[in-house]
Design a protein around this nucleic acid. Structure first.
Lengths: 316, 316
DNA sequence: GACAATTAGGACGTATTCTGTCCTATTTAA
DNA sequence: TTAAATAGGACAGAATACGTCCTAATTGTC
């Protein structure tokens, strides 16, 4: 291998080791015509290596200051994954990530060859993701200490307002963050309540990083804890409903709620708690498969009432 | 001019990022024969980049120490955006992006200073995103031509199976892709039907890139078109339901579906089409507010039948 | 010693890419 | 105005890159 590949890379080395060189000089050193030098300059640009040119008398070529070997090489799959990821990050809206997304894209594009840049641009221009969106960003002054705490496994002191309650100051060991249905949550060990708790980030009023350190439990599954705390702890009525279907069909109809179903003889058991049988009856009524209410009797009554309402609507 | 030059640079990058790699491994990664790898090694030597080789069993190639990539400097916000984006990309499952996400992360980490790497790791370890997930990846052989078509604005010939219909070959000008509720769609101009159409990617059986080019309409809004086509076109029964509620409550209950409701005297009008009154009745029965069925009469019957079923369950 | 897995490099045919030449166009400085 | 630099399209002929096939040598394991 002695030809153009070597000459293009030799051009790169020449430009790296000289402040500025004219096309005539480069042609002589590479042993090619000036027209070919211009092609090689194009080749470097396509490889993502930015070259500054000066027109007119005393013109010439220079590498952008400080630029070094080599450009960032992604495969098409990698470019796709990266571009989709940055698209999705628009929806998450944690802190001021909108501006950050643009600047990340700009930085990555500067080290991408033109072909990958074009692919990345096409993906961004033609692909849309409809995802749950977070309404408002979490204020940056909350997030910086929180991310530091997560990274360094240090406690935080938070001022938090639960639903319908006054603000309380607590010390928390943050184990993880979760994004679900457009909201950000933090899960961690609450020293005030002496147990795992979940906090909505939009209800955080103040957060301060403490010196005290903790050890996050190994294999702590943030999503699992959240799912349980959201579905399993609230409410004062125990509920058991047997769903006469398979796990796959249940997941299709119920989304991630299906993860709390337990396989049993006869189907899948939904075991939870609720404050409102009527709300749960409404939710159950959309399920496209058969189910049986085991507990509580109030739920059967609520379902009956709901069905009566539907019948009244149908008769209008 | 790009193939071999890029591959030589990729070889350099691979050697810089791994302690040692065999010729077989390098050939696989670069997509060339081992004989070509040996030529590329020669090329690096000719460029003055010293490569150490080890003969025999477990042999391989290594760079002489000292050839490094420049660090890539991201801010904390940028690191957060990038890391969240890659987390989210897991759910989208378009082609084989799972492996690609890992390798993107690895590539980026190699050029990150230790502090950013630690932050990025902490984010990946402690943050979870619960998002709609795509069940299965779109086969790569479909996606490559499709992405090429989008980038180059070239038509494709697709073999597509609509719901309950036989496969049909069509020529389509693809305008964009959309991810929604766990599914990937393509929107474009269908030459067979002479109008904009929406296609589910999991129903694509074949796709072939054509030479014919098109001009994508300026400011084409993929999501808007999708929303309209998904809610306004499918089905053979016209549906009109008046929801006796306000827009905010509707949005809480229905998510983005609420965007298609039209304010009218008496509430919000849902005007759509459906193939299945029974499915629609099930969906309507979960709504936590009053509604009236205007059209069709079949929907009233379906709602009645659904309510009867619920009553039977309540009586068990 | 035999075998397997690695390194090394020459030769060949084939498909693809590259090159210099010619040309037009634009930008600077003297 | 002239000269010296940048820029890029088009064309015909030459050069290059690639995989395949082959021989040769080096290691490690059984």
């Amino acid at each position: 291998m002695s030809g153009p590949t070597i000459r293009v890379l030799s051009l790169l080395e020449l430009l790296q080791s000289h402040g500025r060189l004219s096309g005539t000089e480069l042609a002589a050193r590479l042993g090619v015509d000036k027209r070919t030098v211009r092609r090689y300059i194009q080749a470097l640009e396509q490889l993502g290596i930015p070259v500054t040119t000066e027109h007119g008398c005393d013109g010439g070529y220079m590498l952008v200051a400080g630029f070094k070997l080599p450009p960032m090489m992604f495969t098409n799959d990698e470019t796709l994954a990266l571009s989709l990821g940055l698209l999705a990050a628009h929806n998450l809206n944690l802190a001021d990530t909108q501006g950050a997304i643009s600047s990340v894209q700009a930085k990555l594009e500067r080290v991408m060859p033109a072909k990958l840049k074009s692919r990345s641009r096409a993906i961004a221009d033609t692909i849309k993701l409809i995802l749950p969106a977070s309404d408002a960003g979490t204020p940056g002054q909350h997030l910086a200490p929180l991310l530091d705490a997560l990274e360094q496994q240090r406690s935080v002191s938070i001022c938090y307002t639960s639903y319908q309650q006054a603000s309380v100051v607590r010390q928390v060991d943050p184990y993880g963050l979760l994004f679900r249905s457009g909201r950000w949550y933090m899960s961690g060990y609450c020293h005030l309540r002496q147990e795992l708790r979940t906090f909505r980030l939009d209800r955080l009023q103040q957060i301060e990083l403490l010196q005290q350190r903790f050890n996050r439990p190994e294999n702590f599954d943030t999503a699992e804890h959240f799912t349980r705390s959201l579905y399993g702890m609230s409410g004062n009525l125990d509920v058991q409903v047997m769903l006469h279907t398979d796990k796959h069909t249940a997941t299709q109809a119920m989304g991630e709620t299906a993860s709390m179903l337990k396989p049993q003889a006869g189907g899948l058991l939904l075991s939870t708690r609720t404050d409102s049988c009527y709300c749960l009856a409404q939710w159950l009524s959309q399920l496209p498969f058969d189910f049986s209410i085991i507990e509580p009797p109030e739920l059967k009554l609520a379902l009956q009432q709901h069905a009566d309402r539907l019948i009244a609507i149908a008769r209008r």
